[in-house]
Structures are given as structure tokens and as C-alpha cells.
Design a protein around this nucleic acid. Structure first.
Lengths: 220, 220
DNA sequence: CTTGATAGCTGACCACCGGTCATTTATTTA
DNA sequence: TAAATAAATGACCGGTGGTCAGCTATCAAG
């Protein structure tokens, strides 16, 4: 989070990367402690040990910061899926893996939920395109592994992957309201809020979708 | 949008309802002209012909305003689905109907996409619960008609309805970025953005999901 | 070691936002 | 007509994301 030793300025590219990483780390700390609303640029500057203006040398807007955090999380999710999903796994097991990966990768779900509405709204074109390309590439990687693991053919795999991603995106949304502290909820609401948590929403849906596509693939 | 004749103050309940409706109408106008970012409380006050403080007599926060708009849109979507979907319709046709309903109901998709992340964050508890109950009731109405129309049994209908809703929520998200003006997009991005528009994303997914559940329902 | 050029860093400053509340005044009631 | 009520007002507030002229750490040249 702080530059090495006595160096007070980042001159080399390595040092700049280190400084940006420090800013991202500071953002993660604040999110852990105070949620997304706690991430204000001045709080972030204080936490990172920098002046507010300095942040803008490393990140063009607050939303671009979130986008960078999401890219890291997405990267981790794809890596874990590739490491854990094996050829021959059942639809149920794959659905379970996807659910667990998403749930236990820090910040993945809340950032996914905020991705479009909040993040894309205020990111400059050029960094947005860079991020989008990265995201599409990661999505493709994920699809390819899914195809390998399920045996679903190239003609169907894209529709399958996209359906799963959309459903996960929706489930991530619902999960936010499910997070609400059940204290203070009226009795008739408690069940409704809890039922929309990520795992009970996404896992059965993913299984349904996977089974629908995998069954004929095995037959044919 | 303006109170009848010479009345300058809303005293009766009817007049108050009329005033609130005027505020919602003004919000819709601004969204049409300048998008969601254009809806600031002072712009809204000016458009509605009121002082800023007056708005807060009819709406507790900006987000509650959006929530009210969404409830109206959701109501329309459910009504139209009940009116258009008939017993015996194929999965493909139902998927098409859902897509068209969502797409052509003004403000439904963009508000759906913003629902959780933006709206729920800043709505007071009591109006949020009221809205949520309304939303759950509408969702139930929609599910019941879907059950009737597809012949899917009570044990499966809730999972089906929820999966479709989540997928629609995700597709609504993706649609936002697809809306971007294709001018100014780099060549390799243009296709990627367009492909994530609502209809080409949601309709095939909805069909896949519906077919998966309806096929065995017909057999059994 | 000194000096000048470079560029990383700073924080006071800005426009604007959502939301509040003491005050004003339209309208009703007595 | 006068008093009571409550709808409407808009100046004001704290806080936000973002900017930029000036400061200074750092390094290369002499």
C-alpha cells in the first residue's frame, strides 16, 4: 500500500503499477469495513496515504476503480472454474461449483451486480473498451472450458454460456437485497428477503439450464 | 401535471394523488429527454412547476420516485402478459411475448436494471416494504398465469418463474451497455455491444428455459 | 556538487447534488 | 372577518467527484 522504503514518488512503470495496486488494496479495505458507500475519493486518498488529486493519476474516475476491481475478481472466478470443473461432472455438480466460486470470490458478486448500471455509466470510452475486451476474452475462456467439461457443441455453447451469465447477473442483483439484516424486517418479509440470496436463487436455475442442454448433448 | 384551474395547493387526497402523478409524469419527460442522469431534484421541481422542497412532500427520496415508476411499469408488464399469453402457446411463442412485453413497456427495462443496486439503496424501510409486497404480489400473479399457460405444476412453477425473472434482470443489465450509440465504437466492439441487446440475449435464453421445463410437463 | 529540466504530487477550490426547515401564504373553519 | 391549519417555498447545508496552478522529489548534465 505504501511505496518501498524512502521512495516518495513512483517514477518507473513498476512503481506506478505498485501504486495503483496500493489504491485498489485501500479500496478493498474500505469496502470491507464500510461497504461501497464508504468508498469516497477523499476517504480512499487518506487510506492510501495520498492526496486526492494523486488518485486521478492512477484511476480516471471512481467507477473505473470499481471496474478494475471487478476485472480482478472475474479473473479469479474463471481461473477457479477452470481448475475445479472436470470433464464428466454432472449438471448438478457444475451448478454447485459455479455457485461456490461466485460466492467465495471476494467482491465478485456485489461488483457484478453494480457493473452495468453504476460502473459503465461513468467510465471513459478508452478504458471501457479495454476492460470490455478483457471481459469478453475471459468470458470466452470460461465458455471454452464449459464446452469441454459438458461436451456441449460449438453451436450451442455460446447460448448456454450467455444464459448462465445473465442468470448469474440477475441473481447477483437479488442477492444484494437479501443481504439486508433480518433484524428489523417485518415477519412477512423475512422469508421473502432470504429466499432471494444468491445460492438458493442461482444454483437450482443453473442446474435446470445445464441439464436442459447437457441431456440432449449426451444422447446425440 | 399542473393542478386544475386556479387551485394552487393540493388539499384533498385526490388532489395530492394528482400532484404526485404530475411529479411522476415530469420525471418521465426528463428521462425521455435527458436520461436518468438528467433527473435531478431541482430539474424535476422546475419541470413539475414546484419548488424543490415540495417534491419531498410527495416522495421521500429520489430513489423512491424511481421505485414508484418501476411499480407502474411492472404492473403494465404483468397485465400485458396475462392478456396475451394463451393456454397452449409454445415455449418459443411465450419467450417471444415476454421479450416484446418487456421491450415495449416504457421504462420497464432500464428501471429493472437499476432496481436493486441504485433504488433499494436509498429508500426508507417502510415504503420499501410496501413496494416489495406489491412486487411479490405482481410476481405471483405472473407466475400463476405462466403455470396456467404452460401446464407446469405447482412444484416447479416457482423455480421456473424465478429463473426467468433472474435471466430477464440480467438481460436488462446487458441491454444498458448495448444501447450505446454505435457511432464512435471501435469496429471490433460494435458487434459485441449489439449482441448484448435485450431481445437477442433474452429471447433464446427464455425459450431454452421454458422448453426444458415444458417438455417433461407435456410428457408426464 | 550544483543546476536545471522533468514530472509526480498536492490540497484548496469548484460546481453540483440530494435533502432540510424556518418562513410565507393559500385555504378552510369558526 | 379573523384565526387556525397545513401546503408550498427556496435559501441553505454538508458532502460529493473532479480539477489545476503551484510545489518539490528525482534525475541527468555540466
Amino acid at each position: 500500500m505504501v511505496l518501498e522504503d524512502n521512495a516518495k514518488r513512483a517514477r518507473s512503470e513498476d512503481q506506478k503499477a505498485e501504486r495503483q495496486a496500493g489504491i485498489l488494496a485501500a479500496a478493498r479495505e474500505i469496502i470491507d469495513e464500510s461497504g461501497f458507500d464508504g468508498v469516497t475519493m477523499s476517504a480512499l486518498a487518506k487510506r492510501a496515504g495520498l492526496a486526492k488529486g494523486t488518485l486521478y493519476l492512477y484511476v480516471r474516475s471512481k467507477e473505473e476503480l470499481f471496474l478494475l476491481l471487478f476485472l480482478e475478481a472475474m479473473d479469479e472466478v474463471v481461473d477457479r472454474f477452470k481448475a475445479n470443473a472436470k470433464l464428466g461432472d454432472s449438471a448438478a455438480h457444475l451448478a454447485h461449483l459455479m455457485t461456490e466460486n461466485a460466492l467465495t470470490t471476494p467482491l465478485f458478486l456485489p461488483l457484478f451486480a453494480r457493473l452495468v448500471a453504476v460502473i459503465e455509466a461513468n467510465v471513459a470510452d478508452e478504458p471501457l473498451f479495454t476492460a470490455k475486451r478483457r471481459l469478453l476474452a475471459l468470458g470466452h475462456e470460461w465458455s471454452m472450458h464449459l464446452a469441454y467439461v459438458t461436451g456441449v457443441g460449438p453451436d450451442q455453447i455460446e447460448a448456454l454460456a450467455r444464459t448462465l451469465m445473465m442468470t448469474m447477473q440477475g441473481a447477483a442483483q437479488f442477492d444484494i437485497s437479501a443481504q439486508r439484516d433480518p433484524e428489523g424486517l417485518p415477519d412477512d418479509m423475512r422469508e421473502a428477503f432470504g429466499a432471494y440470496a444468491f445460492a438458493p436463487s442461482f444454483e437450482p436455475s443453473a442446474r435446470l439450464i445445464l441439464e436442459a442442454v447437457m441431456a440432449p448433448a449426451l444422447e446425440g
